[in-house]
Design a protein around this nucleic acid. Structure first.
Lengths: 242, 242
DNA sequence: ATAGTTAGTTGTACAGTCCAACTTACTTAG
DNA sequence: CTAAGTAAGTTGGACTGTACAACTAACTAT
């Protein structure tokens, strides 16, 4: 058994004579759709020897050392392949590696998480959006992807508490109530309107455009992200989340 | 060239017919020594075909799929091997993978960072502590370990701003001024005594022991960490660090 | 005109940091 | 025995930003 595993690894100089784990990259892609936080998932293929056939899984796959210069490029490629989106917010989430997470052998995955505007994406046929409800996905996922997703949700919620990350989920032009709504969707609790406005407006991250959003009631000022585009870190969270 | 690389990878079913990157784990081990933040580094071996011979590097090495159940276990093992410490604060930092970071081929490392009490450790002969000055290490490191270390320092400073992480750098019993000093060493700036005390004491993370630290002036109350031992997250940072 | 709805503002309360002065408890020098 | 020195720990006022709630503003629909 150990011999078989070893046969897949390197055998060259003494140094590299180590069986190598499988190396993959997976991407947790979030968007706001239908007023809900949703995550992009794909269906596993059904082929011979495929683990978790037809299960839902995070988009991802093996690192292609001929094509991928580095891990981030690999993650960006996978995001692009599934959604067509090229310039999202993309951050490394962490890595998961163990003997047991993939039936094909010791494997390690490098997980990324992305925030994109769903409207700007054109999905491949095997991909679909699934809503996060009560901070969880209802469906079971292949591998340890459920754990990875849970970790991504936690990280997202955490950071939304004290950063401007939701800005990356917004269209080019948006109103402050729009943005607040996205914060509230992610955090799943209401925020104070006046404190929210103070925080965002004093952060120097958005600028008004010379237009108003008109609707059945009072028009709202439209804003856009300032050029710099780095996320802003606030020095306080909102309500002490207990 | 691609053929040679490919020869090191898996060749079995179609799925696994991917050349596999080298997989390593590296650990950034911090401690407070001599009133400075220090990091544990090792000297690279000088053998035939060794990359960066005799350079300083982070402790780490290949994942041993026969011994390491998962990545965290591998990191804990490497920490144990170098320092003898078994129950530190150990958190994943991220992963770095690219075609160019290791001359031996496409490689990915899973980086961890640990906070330990240096006094409790017994180093191996190739390991030594080096001080962080002005938030940087003066020495150049092998591979991309300089970048990984910089990232670890940034993460540590960031988290120290709003968590109780420095508690893991303290001996079993310590005073509040001791703890404040460690915060100040890591952040490299003075903190307000009264605000510091208010924050720590209201966090329910330490409890007084029935002893005082005696010295040439007013004795100070000794405390110890409460049992739960999870790090505490505060809802504000200290001074807006600009 | 009036009611309804959402955008946006205002004012008071409160929490926690910032800053600085203060009190307390000890040691050491005279 | 007292005085000076020092670090521990406390206190109070200024300031910042959120919490809460009431308010005004701008529009649509009836």
């Amino acid at each position: 058994m150990a011999g078989e595993v070893r046969a897949q690894g390197a055998v060259k100089s003494g140094q590299l004579d180590f069986p190598r784990p499988l190396t993959t990259v997976d991407v947790v892609i979030f968007s706001i759709l239908d007023d809900k936080l949703q995550v992009l998932l794909v269906q596993r293929p059904a082929g011979e020897g495929e683990p978790f056939p037809l299960s839902l899984a995070l988009p991802g796959g093996f690192v292609d050392i001929a094509r991928d210069r580095d891990l981030a490029a690999c993650a960006a490629r996978k995001l692009k392949e599934k959604t067509g989106v090229t310039s999202p917010y993309l951050e490394q989430l962490g890595s998961w590696g163990s003997a047991s997470r993939d039936p094909r052998g010791w494997s390690a995955t490098h997980a990324y998480f992305a925030l994109i505007l769903a409207d700007a994406s054109t999905l491949t046929s095997d991909a679909r959006w699934l809503p996060i409800r009560d901070g969880k996905l209802r469906e079971k996922l292949a591998f340890d992807h459920g754990e990875i997703l849970a970790s991504a949700i936690q990280r997202l919620r955490n950071k939304v508490e004290y950063t401007s990350l939701p800005a990356y989920l917004m269209p080019a032009e948006f109103t402050l109530p729009d943005l607040q709504r996205v914060y509230e969707i992610v955090l799943d609790r209401p925020l104070e309107k006046s404190a929210f406005r103070t925080r965002i407006l004093s952060a120097d991250m958005i600028e008004p455009v010379a237009k108003m959003r008109r609707g059945p009631n009072r028009p709202a000022q439209l804003y856009r992200l300032k050029k710099n585009s780095e996320p802003v870190y606030f020095v306080r969270t909102f309500n002490p989340p207990e």
